[in-house]
Simulated assay, not measured.
Amino acid sequence: MKHAVAFACVQREILRLFPENVSIEPRYSGDARSGGPVLTNQWTGSKKPDIVLHATGQPHQIQCIFDFKFPCTRSSKSDPFASSETQKQMTSYKELGGNCRPAIVTPQQGVVR
């Protein structure tokens, strides 16, 4: 439910202003021909970040990736990167490219890179 509320906020506040530059939960895989990411419907081996900022109308030209996290434990609230699973996820998103490092968005700390 927390992700649904966060996505609704992105749609209401960001997509309204930049509809051609933001994708919610796009699914990417690598393209052997281009060497870059492409949109896919394939679940196995694909990556699905929560929010992607990209070139106008070009979701494969990634600029920045954001992933929502709602940590429950005291340690994960103070360090959202404490989880090895989160670290793996951010590393896989970094492989998609972009102009900035993938970031986590938490209620406690905001945007964390």
Rank of each mutant, 00 (worst) to 15 (best):
K48V: 06
Q61H: 15
R101F: 04
G98S: 14
P107M: 07
P80Q: 02
T106W: 00
G110W: 06
P26D: 08
L39K: 15
E25I: 03
F66H: 03
S23T: 14
F81I: 01
F70D: 10
T73F: 01
S29Y: 05
P49V: 12
C64I: 10
K48A: 07
S84G: 06
P107I: 05
F70E: 04
P71Y: 10
S78K: 00
P102F: 06
P37I: 05
G98F: 11
R33N: 11
K47F: 11
P26H: 03
N99W: 12
D50E: 01
S75H: 04
A55F: 08
K77A: 06
S92M: 10
H54R: 07
A32S: 05
H54I: 02
S78H: 01
T73Q: 03
M90W: 14
C72D: 10
G35R: 02
C64N: 15
E25K: 07
E85Y: 09
D31R: 05
V52R: 05
W43Y: 15
Q42I: 11
Q58Y: 13
R33M: 03
I62S: 12
I51S: 01
I24L: 10
F70I: 08
Y93G: 02
D79H: 02
C72T: 11
P59M: 12
R27D: 01
N99F: 15
Q109M: 10
S76G: 05
K48Q: 15
F68I: 01
T73K: 04
S23H: 04
R74H: 02
V105I: 10
W43M: 12
P49C: 09
Q109E: 06
Y93T: 02
P107L: 07
P107F: 11
I104P: 04
S46I: 09
K47G: 07
S92H: 09
A32P: 04
F70P: 00
Q58T: 14
M90L: 15
K69N: 00
T44L: 15
E25A: 08
F81V: 00
N99V: 15
K88S: 05
Q63H: 12
V52K: 03
Q42T: 12
D67Y: 06
F66N: 04
Q87E: 02
D79M: 01
T86K: 03
L96K: 09
K48T: 12
G35A: 03
A55I: 02
S29E: 13
G57E: 05
Q42E: 14
Q89P: 09
T86M: 11
I24T: 01
F68S: 00
